[in-house]
């Protein structure tokens, strides 16, 4: 018994050590990014590995805010990501509900088709897509980014799985109460699928926030660029403004981290029901 206790203690200590090591590895590049954002270019290039935050220079941040259109880029990214996520969640919820709760012709075929199509490399579709957007007069507007990304097959998949787990009785009683199907989805279903919304939302947010190629091609005015493209424009043919790029990246991961901290409970809970059932 005593031996067992000792063993358990060693195990615990070992696990904690392991956890710390993994945490450091996971955190290191981000930590480095953070530290670099406070350094001058020559401090960043320093070969003597300097892990401590040697300086707290805010010049990179000041330069970024004052000499570039960073504020616009950031606002654009936030607005586009939020709108895409909202629209995407609405679309995926009702479409997912249709796929999960009704029997109709081609149901499986439609689902399979959607699922397969996301695997096509996007370079191939960018030119035809740009053509469509320009015919609709959507290029250089938020719509050109919101519309394609709101259709998110992975989010649809998660939604569908989750919606399959809702008890049929609940829906039936709603129908007996005289609600039509749309009213039922809005009033009864939507309020109880918060976790799935968290999980599907994270998928859409991740895809939209960090995308590069689509916003690069679709948006032209400097004020309408998104963060990823804007930061990349600081990297010219010969010169890389590491300090400013790092500062910009630090600011750009913050919203994601904050969102994760707020929604992680729902996110995890949504995944439990959404993905576990497979």
């Amino acid at each position: 018994m005593v031996q067992n206790k000792a063993r358990r203690k060693t195990k615990r200590v070992l696990s904690i050590v392991l956890m710390v090591i993994i945490g450091v590895i996971m955190f290191f590049p981000l930590y480095w990014m953070l530290v670099s954002s406070f350094r001058t270019n020559d401090q960043i290039y320093s070969t003597t590995l300097n892990l401590l935050p040697t300086s707290l220079m805010l010049k990179n941040y000041a330069d970024l805010l004052l000499t570039t259109k960073f504020v616009y880029w950031f606002t654009n990214s936030v607005l586009i990501t939020l709108s895409t996520t909202l629209l995407g969640l609405v679309l995926c919820t009702i479409a997912g509900f249709a796929l999960a709760r009704y029997r109709f012709r081609f149901r499986n075929a439609i689902f399979l088709l959607i699922f397969i199509m996301i695997s096509i490399p996007r370079f191939t579709t960018i030119i035809p897509l740009f053509k469509i957007m320009s015919q609709l007069n959507f290029t250089d507007t938020y719509l050109s980014l919101i519309l394609p990304f709101a259709v998110n097959p992975l989010a649809l998949f998660l939604m569908k799985q989750y919606l399959e787990s809702i008890p049929e009785d609940l829906l039936d009683s709603a129908r007996i109460d005289g609600l039509n199907e749309l009213q039922m989805v809005i009033r009864i279903v939507m309020p109880i699928i918060k976790p799935a919304i968290g999980a599907a939302g994270v998928n859409i947010v991740m895809m939209t926030w960090n995308d590069y190629l689509f916003p690069l091609v679709m948006m032209s005015s400097e004020r309408k660029l998104v963060l990823t493209v804007g930061l990349a424009s600081l990297k010219t043919l010969y010169v890389v403004e590491y300090g400013m790029i790092m500062a910009g990246s630090v600011i750009s991961v913050l919203p994601l981290i904050i969102a994760f901290l707020i929604f992680q409970k729902q996110f995890v809970a949504g995944l439990i029901a959404g993905s576990v059932k497979g």
Binding site: G23, T228, A232, S249, F260
Partner: peptide, 14 residues
Amino acid sequence: RTIIFLPVTVSLPV
């Protein structure tokens, strides 16, 4: 949990 989630938040070019 938060720390191991961090890497995926940073965009690939960075």
